[in-house]
Simulated assay, not measured.
Amino acid sequence: MRTFDRLAELQSLVGAPLGTSEWVLIEQTRIDRFAAATEDHQWIHTDAERAAAGPFGATIAHGFLTLSLLPVFFQTAFAVADTRMGINYGLNRVRFTAPVPVGSRVRAHMRLLAYEPIAGGAQLTVEATVEREGADKPVCVAVSLTRRYL
């Protein structure tokens, strides 16, 4: 994990990488729990037998499950020591560019696209490119807006 002492340091890093998260394992129990929480029980996610004969050869994670991992990706990619909290402000763009088969490991590369001072802190626009271990193509690319407060 990359650590910055002060939030203001990030202002000069627009366009630069902020860090890379730790790997997260996508096991069937995680997929099933996500399906239960969202009531999205489509067979490509939850029916291992049917999915084995389907287009991906196994169950796959929901795209929104991959997206929901952004907080853990942020937490393990970089830290800013002088901030007391951060909040999700929104998303500008999200694309699910490849499937995430069960048993995969994923992680995110974070790149700072914009830094905007706000009252009490800064709004960061960060591109998160989520990769699957061993794959050539990213599985998700999302532009996330977060607010960090001093």
Rank of each mutant, 00 (worst) to 15 (best):
M1S: 15
T3S: 14
F4T: 03
D5T: 13
R6P: 03
R6K: 03
R6Q: 06
R6M: 04
L7C: 10
L7H: 08
A8F: 04
E9N: 10
E9A: 11
E9Y: 11
E9Q: 12
Q11H: 11
Q11V: 09
S12H: 01
S12N: 02
L13S: 05
L13W: 12
L13P: 04
V14R: 11
V14M: 09
G15I: 00
G15Y: 03
G15T: 02
G15A: 02
A16V: 07
A16E: 15
P17R: 01
G19I: 14
T20H: 15
T20L: 15
S21Y: 08
S21T: 14
W23S: 03
V24C: 07
L25Y: 00
I26A: 02
E27C: 01
Q28N: 08
Q28H: 09
R30H: 07
D32A: 01
D32N: 02
D32T: 00
D32G: 00
D32L: 02
A35N: 11
A37P: 04
A37H: 11
E39G: 12
E39A: 13
E39M: 15
E39D: 15
D40I: 03
H41L: 14
W43Q: 15
W43R: 15
I44T: 14
T46K: 10
A48N: 13
A48K: 11
A48M: 10
R50V: 12
A51H: 07
A52R: 15
A52H: 12
G54C: 06
P55M: 07
F56D: 06
F56M: 11
A58W: 06
A58Q: 08
A61W: 07
H62L: 05
H62C: 02
G63Q: 03
F64L: 09
L65G: 01
L65N: 05
T66L: 12
L67Y: 10
S68R: 07
L69Y: 11
L70D: 09
P71E: 08
P71K: 06
F73Y: 10
F73S: 02
Q75P: 03
T76C: 15
T76D: 15
F78E: 11
F78M: 13
F78P: 05
A79L: 12
V80S: 14
A81F: 13
R84Q: 08
R84V: 13
M85R: 12
G86Q: 03
I87L: 06
N88T: 10
Y89K: 11
N92Q: 12
R93K: 00
R95C: 04
F96G: 12
A98Q: 00
P99V: 14
V102P: 13
G103Q: 09
G103L: 13
R105W: 05
V106R: 08
R107P: 01
R107I: 03
M110I: 04
L112N: 00
L113D: 14
Y115W: 08
E116H: 00
E116K: 01
E116D: 03
I118H: 14
I118T: 14
G120A: 01
A122M: 05
Q123Y: 06
T125I: 04
T125C: 04
E127G: 05
V130P: 00
E131M: 02
R132P: 02
E133I: 07
G134Y: 00
G134N: 00
G134R: 02
A135C: 12
D136A: 15
D136L: 13
P138S: 10
V139Y: 06
C140A: 07
C140S: 07
C140H: 04
V141R: 02
A142D: 04
V143I: 13
V143F: 13
S144V: 04
R147K: 01
Y149T: 03
Y149C: 01
L150H: 11
L150F: 14
